[in-house]
Design a binder for these strands. Sequence first.
RNA 1: GCCGAUGUAGCUCAGUUGGUCAGAGCAGCUGAUUUGUAAUCUGCAGGUCGGGGGUUCGAAUCCCUUCAUCGGCUCCA
Length: 590
Amino acid sequence: MINITFPDGSVKQYNDGITSIEIAEQISPRLAKEVYAATVNGEVIDLTRPINSDATLKLHKWDDVEGKHAFWHSSAHLLAEALESLYPGIKFGIGPAIENGFYYDVDPGEGKAITDNELVVIENRMKELAAKNLAFIRREVSKEAAIALFSKKGDQYKVELIGELEDGTISLYTQGSFTDLCRGPHLSSTEPIKAIKLLNVAGAYWRGNEKNRMLTRIYGITYPKQKLLDDYLLFLEEARKRDHRRIGKELELFTFSPRVGMGLPLWMPRGAELRQNLINFMTKVLKKRGYAIVATPHIGDVNLYKTSGHYEKYGKDSFQPMSTPQEGEQFMLKPMNCPHHCEIFNATPHSYRDLPYRMAEFGTVYRYEQSGELHGLTRVRSFTQDDAHHFCRPDQLKEEFKSIIDLVQFIFKAVNLSEFTAQISLRDNENKEKYIGSDENWEKAEKAIIEAAEEKKLETTVVLGEAAFYGPKLDFMVKDAIGRKWQLGTIQVDYNLPERFDLTYNGSDNQKHRPVMIHRAIFGSMERFIAVLIENTSGKFPLWLAPEKAVVLPISEKFNDYALKILDFLNNSDICTLIDDRSEKIGKKI
RNA sequence: GCCGAUGUAGCUCAGUUGGUCAGAGCAGCUGAUUUGUAAUCUGCAGGUCGGGGGUUCGAAUCCCUUCAUCGGCUCCA
């Protein structure tokens, strides 16, 4: 007998070798019908795998991510089976579950393509197969056997994957006539898969590397009930109505013109008013918080960016330098404001007493984005950052960083953007050559961010390899109408530019010291922020923000009160208590 | 940039297999009416069917090319 501990702490005894599904059956037959996977001793496994020792057990129904994932991952295998029967000789890459549904990357063969209108045929085949209630059968094999199996089939992608796995950890799953390399877990059978929709086809590079062959990715979603699928499709339809490109056109906020150039937004009067309202509000808040507003040119000498290191990193992928007619100079459209701000800092001597020096600019920058990356206002080639740089003493770094977290939260609240996630982006220690600066400084910077976020009790996810090339960062992401995440605010710690620009301040010891630099943007860019704001509010703005004639709808009375306070603030009455004003505590007086 | 798709009046869209296929609704303008609040009715105007080239007696409809857009991939200082 073995002891099984349930999530509520209760313990029951079962025969050695019992499976999760059998346990579920004993609890209630209905539960058994609704569970899709189980977490046993912390590992998510198939319901049909025997349990041979004392264990903790959690059964996953549809409501659990683990349940959905088993469901969708199994659906991906079903898709693969359908594809194999319809396209003989098709090769398979990977086919995981994702946040909403699943996909499978396939190679239909040289010169062949799978197009949108074939999806319904594939979908129907999936339905036929699912209706057969075929069991997913797991089997563990040696590496040699696995390679032999997939080599024989000609699945070079699978062979490549197996090559990187450790012998003894390789499992295969078979349903019907289809066998796939897979870690699992899976449903017990295809039976629960009742509603199936293939959503679209897209290209995707094998292993995410653009040097590799491009495979065909088929996205789909499945549900245990048709109603759930109908609801999801309805949601997508509704979401499309909130698309900022659509609302932007309807409300005449902005437009694009091929004659002006792709990715170059044109703000129409009402959009410009909205944008200006945001800028005005932010400017007042920044002044209250001890920022100095500066302005810098739209171009800069190439050597400026060589000094900063940006040229080496991004020069080839930027709008190329322009030359002057006579002097032989080279200038670039500025892709970022930081180097200019460093030179402003350098223009005057600084005492340790005067730090932090907070320098802000609504700076328009120009970045060459590949044509296929452009997307409404969220990804453009010309955009205006609400950029700022804090030059501070090392001992001020953390407090300064925390004050910016406050600011982000305050600003997001002011526009009623309540749902955002915070992501800490660190260096990828495997690929250090992608980054500049010493290990010591990187470690200090990363530590500062992690601690600041912790002390602000900010819920964060940590992602390795997403740092900027000069430093780690904390990003604030907001979802658009259909759930894509966009980075808005960002706070970045940088020890490198101060070195490169030889920035100094005089310490209390009358010696030169190196300041630490924080790069930060709250909106991120006016363009993207407004885009995401539109999609989150369906184009209904708080009173203080709305352009003339736009629909003003306070979302809730609670928010309305807040919005009115902001209006007062903008009208210069003295209600500044709504801002957690840290500048007096830690900043220089203005 | 790569894979797939799309591109018809300001907007949303119809246009079967190439031959009255250049249309409708909304918006706009005109006039009338007034049962008032996204009013009703009359009339008008709006497009060389994204651009260019080709096939054909004839193309919005087929082919090529180019531009732009959409969904992804890659990238995102």
